[in-house]
Design a protein around this nucleic acid. Structure first.
Lengths: 248, 248
DNA sequence: GCAAAAGTGTTGGAAATACACCCATGT
DNA sequence: ACATGGGTGTATTTCCAACACTTTTGC
């Protein structure tokens, strides 16, 4: 980043001292920065997202994402992790930056630029211990309106999730450690909102050769039990793909 | 975004008035925000990037990206466009947000969070009229060090360009309006740093059916002249792809 | 006529798709 | 026995990669 002071289209050729720039950085040019977390989960064969009542009175009727201001001494990633921890008690989950939303009037309290992150958690294995502000899971597809510009943030995060999940083995963090192929397929079908052929789905995953057969079976299912697997992250890391292929 | 005041892991269940939040937004929690532009061009069969001397004295020996602080009343996208305009005189080009870099010590003048954008411009058709701070094009592959964390920003932007260019017809904005298939292939080979089979490359682009044959030939080339084409954006917009296919 | 790049088709293999039957379990 | 989903194989098609010769122009 390189700093200059004009905002009006003038051209700048000067060289500045550090203290001159420090003055700018400390002065009127600062903006409130927040992080919003889009936390996806999977349960009952539906993709879910975690929402709370906005704790801003004006928007208390509306649901909102989990967010907070970033402290000037705090890393962005650390802020995202902190927010997740504060709101859910959860730790140690996949978090990825989506993009930054900087609309001038996106927040009623003034200019607040927000960096969106998304995260994937396993609803079964991470029961929420904190339920303040009516924190709970909502079906992604049933959401029509959110506070602020959070619907837009959700939509873009969801699109990004759909893209990423096809190229990286993210989805496994939404499942229990041991899962059946049926569960895996249900998850992909929910995220991508599509149906797939069961036989070809199996073929594809077995061909990848990243699933470890645990030699265990599902229990208490009202039909023939399926085998349980988990995902071999080590093997995946070693085999990652090249990708050359123009494909609009 | 939802605002709360704790930074220390406490949990918050309160409902706040707008003015209480306004106080927070205006107070100590603000951070300097900048935009940095990674401007790619293509010339002499090489991918180039536009750099200037840092106008910060401390880093005056180093090259840096084109950046500036964001004004509190300015949209992020507008800031990116303004910076491009100020530094190069250019207007009306493709600009896309990459991601946000928020390292605490990334800037010597204090906490400055920066939003990176990249942009693709046609070097031939947009001669730079402004050359302050030694603004000029550098070969992307020759860059080893930049001021601040700009090398990291460049690397990530370049990776994103490589991904995007394979799925969207961005590359055409780096070429003259009329281009030959050879030029197009040279461009892809430069961006993706690879070699492609000439016949298969043609086949692929003709099969897409987005190239308009202008019935014109190259001029003044020291060999058999090739046909000139341009890209049919309208047709592309109508045909865009669905995209289902797990592929790690 | 020679150098340099344009233009052009075919073939084989790999991957994706479509599709149907038998099997194991719980009720 | 029957309902439910698990498990398996094959034929077809589509896409991609590899590959060589003839043509047109400038010099």
């Amino acid at each position: 980043m390189h700093i200059s002071s004009t905002k009006n289209g003038d051209l700048i050729a000067s060289v500045k001292t550090l203290s001159a720039v420090q003055t700018e950085v400390k002065s009127i040019n600062r903006i409130a920065l927040s992080v919003d977390c889009v936390i996806f989960g999977f349960d009952e064969n539906k993709l879910k997202v975690l929402l709370i009542r906005s704790d801003l009175k004006k928007f208390h009727e509306k649901w909102s994402l989990l967010g907070d201001l970033v402290d000037p001494k705090e890393e962005l990633d650390a802020a995202a992790n902190r927010i997740l921890k504060q709101r859910t008690g959860l730790d140690d989950v996949y978090l990825e930056q989506v993009r930054t939303f900087g609309g001038i009037n996106r927040h009623p309290a003034g200019r607040v630029v927000t960096v969106a992150y998304y995260s994937l958690i396993n609803i079964q294995h991470h029961k929420l211990k904190i339920l303040d502000n009516e924190l709970h899971w909502h079906d992604v597809n049933d959401i029509t309106e959110l506070a602020f510009d959070h619907k837009q943030i959700l939509d873009i995060s969801y699109e990004q999730l759909q893209r990423r999940v096809q190229e990286h083995p993210l989805a496994f963090s939404l499942l229990p450690k041991k899962f059946s192929l049926r569960e895996l397929q249900n998850l992909y079908e929910a995220i991508l909102d599509t149906k797939m052929d069961r036989r070809n789905f199996r073929k594809k995953f077995f061909a990848m050769d990243f699933l470890i057969d645990l030699n265990q079976m599902e229990q208490d299912v009202p039909h023939r039990p399926g085998k349980l697997y988990n995902f071999n992250y080590n093997k995946y890391e070693k085999k990652k793909k090249k990708w050359i292929g123009i494909d609009f």
